[in-house]
Simulated scan of single mutants.
Amino acid sequence: MARMTPVDIARWITAIVFVVIGVTHFIPPVVRGMAAMVPAVFHGRPFSAVGWVWVTGVAEIAGGLGLLWEPTRAAAGIALAVFLVCVFPANAHAAGKREKFGVFAVPFWPRLAMQLALIAIVLWVGLAP
């Protein structure tokens, strides 16, 4: 059995995190909270707010699994980085509105820092050999 490198361990952890978070996009109370975060401009373009939650859940699950299979690893890392950029408007919309969005309302600057760190991580684990 091959010995796991630090990037292998980080890849597995990252993949598991994305898959688990993706699965939560199908739990009704979580879906309601996340759907409320979707800015109105995106409603019906082309999905409802709930549809966006489901689509992003599928994307997170697919991206996480893609990191684990060598032929799709690089594409999954790049796709997850793009995904993180694309979902940031919903996070920014919720920033600081804890009374409305609860735990999803991470203040803007910490959320931006976290998003940038996640982008760096998915690119690292996706593109590293």
Results as ranks from 00 to 15, higher is better:
residue 12 W to A: 14
residue 13 I to E: 07
residue 13 I to P: 00
residue 14 T to R: 03
residue 14 T to W: 02
residue 14 T to Q: 09
residue 14 T to G: 05
residue 14 T to P: 05
residue 15 A to V: 00
residue 16 I to G: 03
residue 16 I to S: 04
residue 17 V to T: 07
residue 18 F to L: 09
residue 18 F to W: 08
residue 19 V to D: 10
residue 19 V to L: 06
residue 20 V to R: 00
residue 21 I to G: 08
residue 22 G to E: 00
residue 23 V to G: 00
residue 24 T to V: 00
residue 25 H to N: 03
residue 25 H to M: 10
residue 25 H to S: 06
residue 26 F to N: 01
residue 26 F to Y: 00
residue 27 I to G: 00
residue 28 P to N: 03
residue 29 P to E: 00
residue 29 P to H: 06
residue 30 V to I: 13
residue 31 V to Q: 00
residue 32 R to H: 08
residue 33 G to T: 02
residue 34 M to E: 07
residue 35 A to Q: 02
residue 35 A to F: 06
residue 36 A to T: 04
residue 36 A to K: 01
residue 36 A to D: 09
residue 37 M to C: 08
residue 37 M to F: 03
residue 37 M to I: 02
residue 39 P to C: 04
residue 40 A to K: 10
residue 41 V to N: 14
residue 41 V to T: 13
residue 42 F to D: 06
residue 43 H to M: 12
residue 43 H to S: 15
residue 45 R to G: 08
residue 47 F to Y: 15
residue 47 F to M: 11
residue 48 S to H: 07
residue 49 A to G: 01
residue 50 V to K: 15
residue 51 G to C: 02
residue 51 G to P: 06
residue 51 G to L: 01
residue 52 W to M: 07
residue 52 W to L: 02
residue 52 W to S: 08
residue 52 W to K: 08
residue 54 W to H: 13
residue 55 V to M: 09
residue 55 V to C: 05
residue 55 V to K: 07
residue 56 T to S: 11
residue 58 V to D: 14
residue 58 V to C: 05
residue 58 V to S: 00
residue 59 A to D: 13
residue 62 A to V: 12
residue 62 A to T: 10
residue 63 G to V: 07
residue 63 G to A: 06
residue 65 L to S: 11
residue 66 G to A: 06
residue 66 G to K: 14
residue 66 G to I: 11
residue 66 G to V: 03
residue 66 G to C: 10
residue 67 L to Y: 01
residue 69 W to P: 12
residue 70 E to F: 15
residue 70 E to S: 15
residue 72 T to H: 14
residue 73 R to V: 09
residue 73 R to A: 12
residue 73 R to N: 08
residue 74 A to V: 15
residue 76 A to C: 12
residue 76 A to D: 04
residue 77 G to T: 09
residue 77 G to A: 14
residue 77 G to C: 10
residue 78 I to Y: 15
residue 79 A to D: 07
residue 80 L to K: 03
residue 81 A to Y: 08
residue 82 V to N: 13
residue 82 V to Y: 10
residue 84 L to G: 01
residue 84 L to P: 02
residue 85 V to G: 10
residue 86 C to K: 15
residue 86 C to W: 14
residue 87 V to I: 14
residue 87 V to W: 09
residue 88 F to Q: 12
residue 88 F to P: 09
residue 89 P to F: 01
residue 89 P to M: 03
residue 89 P to N: 00
residue 90 A to E: 02
residue 91 N to D: 06
residue 91 N to R: 08
residue 91 N to S: 10
residue 92 A to K: 11
residue 93 H to Y: 08
residue 93 H to D: 01
residue 93 H to G: 13
residue 94 A to K: 01
residue 96 G to D: 03
residue 96 G to V: 09
residue 97 K to N: 12
residue 97 K to A: 09
residue 98 R to A: 15
residue 99 E to D: 15
residue 101 F to D: 10
residue 101 F to P: 13
residue 102 G to E: 05
residue 105 A to T: 04
residue 105 A to L: 02
residue 105 A to V: 04
residue 106 V to D: 02
residue 107 P to D: 05
residue 107 P to R: 07
residue 108 F to W: 04
residue 108 F to I: 05
residue 108 F to N: 08
residue 108 F to H: 05
residue 108 F to Y: 01
residue 109 W to Q: 13
residue 109 W to Y: 13
